[in-house]
Design a protein around this nucleic acid. Sequence first.
DNA 1: CTCGGCCGCCTTGTATGTAAGTATGCAGGA
DNA 2: TCCTGCATACTTACATACAAGGCGGCCGAG
Lengths: 231, 231
Amino acid sequence: MRIDRLQHAAAGSASRQVYRALRDAIIASDIAPGQRISENELAERLAVSRTPIREALIRLRDERFVQIVPQLGTFVTPISVAAVEDAQFIRESLECAAVRIAAVRAEDGDLAALDGLVQRQAEVSEHGDHARFAVLDDEFHAALCELAGRPVAWEVAQRVKGHLNRVRRLSLPQPDYLAEMVAEHRLVVEALRKRDPDAAETALRHHLRMVLSALPAIRAQHPDYFEEERA
Amino acid sequence: MRIDRLQHAAAGSASRQVYRALRDAIIASDIAPGQRISENELAERLAVSRTPIREALIRLRDERFVQIVPQLGTFVTPISVAAVEDAQFIRESLECAAVRIAAVRAEDGDLAALDGLVQRQAEVSEHGDHARFAVLDDEFHAALCELAGRPVAWEVAQRVKGHLNRVRRLSLPQPDYLAEMVAEHRLVVEALRKRDPDAAETALRHHLRMVLSALPAIRAQHPDYFEEERA
DNA sequence: CTCGGCCGCCTTGTATGTAAGTATGCAGGA
DNA sequence: TCCTGCATACTTACATACAAGGCGGCCGAG
């Protein structure tokens, strides 16, 4: 793992910075699944005391990114197929429920804003800029929840989305991946424009499931990152 | 508030015990919304140090039961209509999605188990035993999620359910409330028996919304427990 | 060679001390 | 009377010290 140097005072409290740094490192597999995280070592490396480290680890445990075993150690949770499917289920349930409401409440101005968002996605997808696309993708899904009047849906979805990103980062980048995503986003917006909740839900559900489709291949490629199947 | 004496070593670490005790106290309104929680005072009263108190408060902040303002204090969050609706939205989305799957996957043995559960609910409802009913009610909803193969759905639902219970505890106990709940549970099981996802979802959604129906009345009765409406 | 017991190191959990910042009450002047 | 400035007492955030327990290596006996 290569975590170093916290940002200066910006970005909130030390524990929050540690939390973000660790979470990003886990999702990016900079810290390998199963690896032990030493509170002492981290504290020394980040030049803070154990207290903010502990608080960050507690939050990560609540999100199931680490397992804390008393008097033994703290470990990055192996990627579990069940956990990924759980995350997918939660995200799908919440966002699909939200988009149904959005289909009813969306006004012309909202749709125009979504169009603009998708248009910008199309532009960055031309350049194959995955990082920038990811930001715009998050904005898109956040906008859907916002439109439904349930920003909390996106907050929760974003929480569990970390587990999905963790596996997605392991998959080989498909060449037309971004273009497909943009096309699917367009379908969702079109359904919203027709004020058709069923079509919007169907389109979004299909879109969300694209991520999972690569899961078996990823597991075959990185078997050591996964926990063994439970009987 | 009247929190005292943690249980002895059972029930896990001190911080977890503090967390549970505080959460229960907040949901039961033993600690009034808006009231300040002093780390020092709590530590003294519970006979533990400030560390486990802090860790418990952090978890409660993540669940939006308290607000921590640096260098100022920690406060029990006022009941907010928006937060209650958010919790309702999440629970409804997850459980309805789960019950649709359950309708497809349910086998005869599962249905029999649900029947038994509802039967026991009917018995305790006869005696007006709200506490025991609450336990069986939780078991029922947990069973639905388990049947769908998504126990995580219930875990998340249970988390946000605290916000719903907080307002429900404030409502006057309706005389036929428990009997109604049992009847609605029966409708859900019947829909499952017919393997009808749409009917199951409809029945469950109607059931879940019963709780919210009393919200305006509760707010009128305890205005000081609610935060002022946002413009 | 193998197995059993002991010892030391390392872990997390908890307790306590230090620092920095905010609200509050009071004193003093306009 | 009202407003301003300060001292004080409180808070959380962070740092450090201590305690309890598991794991592994070592050593000795069989």
